[in-house]
């Protein structure tokens, strides 16, 4: 099968949905002529024109808020906020409006909107362009939170997100946008709430999201030579969350590591650990180990940034604690 990058997979999904549903449109900062800060919307303005691919003013409250309104008015907006770091400025629109409108009006209004945001630390972007706090959104009832790691998952999950009547936070990790993988040319969807076992193993369950999923696969491959068998699971969506797939794996391995680039304290790794501790503790043969970012802002200086970003080294250390 042909191989394309995660960026190209997303672009393909957007193009398909724009072609097949007149109600779909995109807006955000620099998504038109520039094609988006990470190139995901490249070329779309040429094909669909400026009425459907809209460069907005630098107004995150308006970008999200008016996206919500467009959804209420019958459209299916795909809205981009360039970096997750910029979402605190429009958090009211996300938390108080987008997430709650369906519920607080007794189910009358729908917000079928996708909010695409870029996450992750890479390339010395320092404290305000490197964060991964999507656990904020997982915390809020009413939002779907999608975190693909592979091009295949990215395309299938974006298709599902655009077709969903729920508001979706679609998280794209910087370190994954250029990763290539097999992606069918045909249209397909991947259901929310279905984790995938990316690599089977028997000794340790390693739940990993986005860029850390790729690091986890590399480590698992290396350790195979040392006769340590690691099962790598990608939750793919953080809300809804497929705990069953993880529970089944823990039942088999008795050991759990959770790797997620969010801050460890109150982050996604902690939440997943709590789920397993609460319901599966009798199956565990050792402590749960969490891998994530330390309790500090992301520093600028290259050696410091390297120390901040979790990756293969941190996963190896976590494994050492269990074997």
């Amino acid at each position: 099968m042909r191989q394309i990058s995660l960026r190209e997979a997303l672009n393909e999904s957007l193009r398909y949905n724009l072609q097949h549903d007149e109600r779909v449109f995109c807006w955000g900062e620099d998504i038109g002529v520039l094609g988006g800060a990470f190139g995901v919307t490249a070329g779309l303005i040429d094909e669909f024109g400026p009425m459907r691919i809209i460069d907005t003013p630098l107004s995150e409250i308006a970008i999200v808020g008016a996206g919500i309104g467009a959804a209420l008015g019958g459209l299916r907006p795909v809205v981009e906020i360039m970096y997750i770091d910029f979402t605190p400025g429009c958090m009211d629109m996300i938390v108080n409006q987008m997430a709650k409108i369906h519920y607080m009006f007794g189910g009358q209004c729908r917000v079928p909107m996708v909010l695409r945001i870029v996450t992750g630390a890479m390339g010395e972007n320092a404290a305000q362009h490197s964060q991964s706090f999507y656990s904020f959104f997982v915390h809020v009832p009413g939002l779907i939170v999608v975190t693909p790691s592979t091009p295949y998952d990215a395309k299938g999950l974006l298709n599902t997100s655009i077709a969903s009547d729920n508001p979706v936070i679609f998280v794209e990790h910087k370190r994954t946008v250029n990763i290539k993988g097999e992606v069918p040319e045909d249209h397909y969807t991947i259901p929310f709430g279905k984790a995938e076992v990316k690599r089977e193993g028997t000794d340790i369950t390693l739940v990993a999201t986005q860029a850390l999923m790729h690091d986890a696969l590399k480590v698992a491959e290396d350790l195979e030579k040392e006769h340590v068998s690691i099962e790598v699971i990608d939750p793919r969506t953080l809300k809804p969350f497929d705990k069953e797939t993880i529970f089944q794996s823990v039942e088999k391995t008795g050991r759990l590591i959770v790797a997620d680039e969010g801050w460890i304290h109150c982050g996604m790794a902690s939440e997943i650990s709590a789920l397993v501790a609460e319901e599966m503790i009798t199956y565990l043969d050792g402590p749960i180990v969490r891998v994530g970012t330390p309790d500090s802002p992301c520093p600028f200086s290259p050696p410091l940034e390297k120390a901040y970003i979790p990756g293969e080294e941190e996963i190896r250390e976590a494994i050492k604690k269990l074997i």
Partner: peptide, 25 residues
């Protein structure tokens, strides 16, 4: 009536989007 709003000013950007839908359609 697409909603009253408990957040002061919350409806203002949303209204812009509803207007956009009207224009778009």
């Amino acid at each position: 009536v697409l909603g009253t709003n408990g957040i002061v000013g919350g409806g203002i950007p949303i209204a812009a989007g509803v207007g956009f839908a009207s224009k778009y359609l």
